[in-house]
Design a protein around this nucleic acid. Structure first.
Lengths: 336, 336
DNA sequence: GATGACGCTGGAAGCGCTTCCAGTCTTAGG
DNA sequence: CCTAAGACTGGAAGCGCTTCCAGCGTCATC
């Protein structure tokens, strides 16, 4: 037999027991003004005695607020979702939710089915607002969300489509930082391994590299595109070594790609950092375990999640908010 | 300015437009019996014209079903939550939810605050049921959940406290499989590195090893306790080599520990599998990348999530259900 | 032609809460 | 002592949906 959902006491029972009207009891619970000391005490006593807790659904119907926010992730490929990135975001979001009475609904919305479920959720007013992560350029979610007309905050920006509210890491600035660090080391033949150039992250990190080079009076020395994975970093490194055997530094747009590059450099007999300095991006756990440990750009994913959530809460409350860029910083280890 | 939540059309408007009563319209939507062809057509036309979608909250209030299930995880340590394990569970859960109209609420409930939020969620009837993961022996969540009287399914069993409904991997059987494999290889001086013995997983995997040994007429050759991490596996391996220099095989209760053991064995000059055969447990990604690749016991975490969800859905629907143990199987690679 | 049985229908009563509003009771000020 | 401004109060009307029920036709059966 399935569990028997005990019947919870209702506000009416509380009111009756306290000898007041339901409205009075309601006022006590929401501690609204115009409640006498005596009423308050009586109601509170009744609440305690009955173990009363207001029914969420009923309250939601009356107030038109569900008390739930959604986090939609546009990847349900287990491998990609398993990325610690999402876990970090979720931890950040949860932290920000911790002292509100909002709860988190998680939607994996990459498949058609997932997307239509999300659409339905939004249009049936199942949540008060939504956070979106990891969208590609023209992800259909963008339209779905806009049409629903609910408060929505983006984590990162879809390329070429600046949403009204987003929180993003300073990819441009971080890449510049990394490149400037290499330049400061006296390197001049600096190449870069980029992420996919059709993503905002990939594009911004490349732009940061480029800007730093030009500002320093150097010319970008070579570029190869990867897809943020270790394997792609290794492949890109091979291409670059082949085309620019004289390179003396590489900026990889992700730690994973940097790890791949490190491996290839080692195999090619180049010493790091003596012959080639390497810096990555993300500051994942892997960065501490590469050989040598990786100098990289740190971004706080938890902070990203936290700020998205704060922003969303603000929007739901009807406050003015503006988008925000979270700072990144260079972590110096031994590879550069 | 915050987004303006467009007003959605209501059932009354649909009914009016279709020229029928609200109850008739409702019947069409829930495709209940006793609806004439004409009524159905009229209502469906009105629905299409108005873009109507039933309000979730209102429906929830009337039916006493929220359409939301919770997944509570008793770890919010980012490091632990980042474990691909949880991501896999979530993917499995989402898959099972995909063709229902239930949604997933995620609760990180290890802190006191998190737990009281969860308690509140359950008692305010914010969800229809709950799935619990990764509980230690006497986790307070157990009581909280029992008291709430909602359908609850456990992933894995808390030690010494068999919940009424759970889904678990066959840890005992898997460990036996692993040990038997080593025995089949002709090894006789087989040691084991266990997980924490105060967890059900740790205990069951140890028991499987022990039973297999005894069944084969061998005596357990040596045991060291780890905590499922790579570092602890390495430490345990050192101890075992020291105490049982003649060992010819090791069964590690997790791939991470096996990886640590492999490293230590290599440093000690033992060849794997020639001198010492090693088998792990979990079949994580790491198992394919160790040197040599690790023979291990595979368990499907996604399946775990999926089955938990199916079971919960059944319970919510009032069906009879019984707990279930998911099979594990041996994956042969090169370490044994 | 009377009689059920049955399919369909709309009215109405909830689900459990919030909130508006019109009253009643104080109280201070004149 | 009268009055008006507050402070409280409970009744009632929602929020948007489901569902029970009584009522109505329509048909096949006797």
């Amino acid at each position: 037999m399935a569990a028997t959902p005990r019947r919870q006491p209702t506000l009416d029972e509380v009111a009756e027991r306290a000898g007041v009207s339901r409205s009075a009891a309601s006022r006590v619970i929401n501690n609204a003004p115009h409640v006498s000391r005596a009423t308050r005490d009586a109601v509170e006593k009744a609440i305690k005695a009955l173990g009363y807790l207001p029914n969420r659904t009923a309250r939601a119907l009356a107030t038109q607020q569900t008390g739930i926010v959604a986090l939609a992730v546009s990847h349900d490929d287990p491998e990609l979702f398993a990325d610690p990135f999402f876990a970090q975001v979720i931890v950040g979001v949860s932290a920000a939710l911790e002292d509100t009475d909002l709860h988190l609904l998680l939607c994996l919305a990459s498949s058609g089915r997932g997307r239509s479920r999300l659409t339905n959720l939004l249009h049936t007013r199942g949540v008060d607002g939504i956070m979106l992560m990891a969208l590609h350029g023209d992800d259909p979610l963008t339209h779905i969300v806009r049409r629903a007309g609910l408060p929505a905050v983006y984590g990162g920006r879809p390329l070429h489509a600046e949403p009204q509210w987003y929180v993003d890491s300073d990819n441009l600035g971080g890449a510049r930082l990394a490149t400037e660090h290499l330049i400061g080391l006296g390197r001049t033949r600096i190449v870069t391994i980029t992420g996919q150039m059709y993503t905002d992250v990939g594009e911004a990190r490349y732009r940061g590299y480029r800007e730093a080079m030009i500002m320093a009076g150097l010319t970008p020395h070579g570029t190869a595109e990867g897809d943020f994975t270790e394997a792609s970093g290794a492949a890109a490194m091979k291409v670059l070594l082949d085309r620019h055997p004289d390179l003396d530094a590489v900026f990889a747009a992700s730690d994973n790609m940097a790890a791949g590059a490190l491996r290839v450099l080692g195999d090619a007999g180049r010493r790091v950092p003596a012959d080639v300095a390497v810096v990555g991006f993300d500051d994942l756990a892997i960065a501490e375990r590469t050989e040598p440990p990786l100098t990289t750009v740190h971004q706080s994913i938890q902070a990203l999640g936290r700020e998205m959530t704060r922003m969303l809460i603000g929007l739901i409350a009807g406050q003015e908010r503006s988008s925000m860029i979270l700072p990144t910083r260079l972590i110096r280890r031994e590879s550069a």
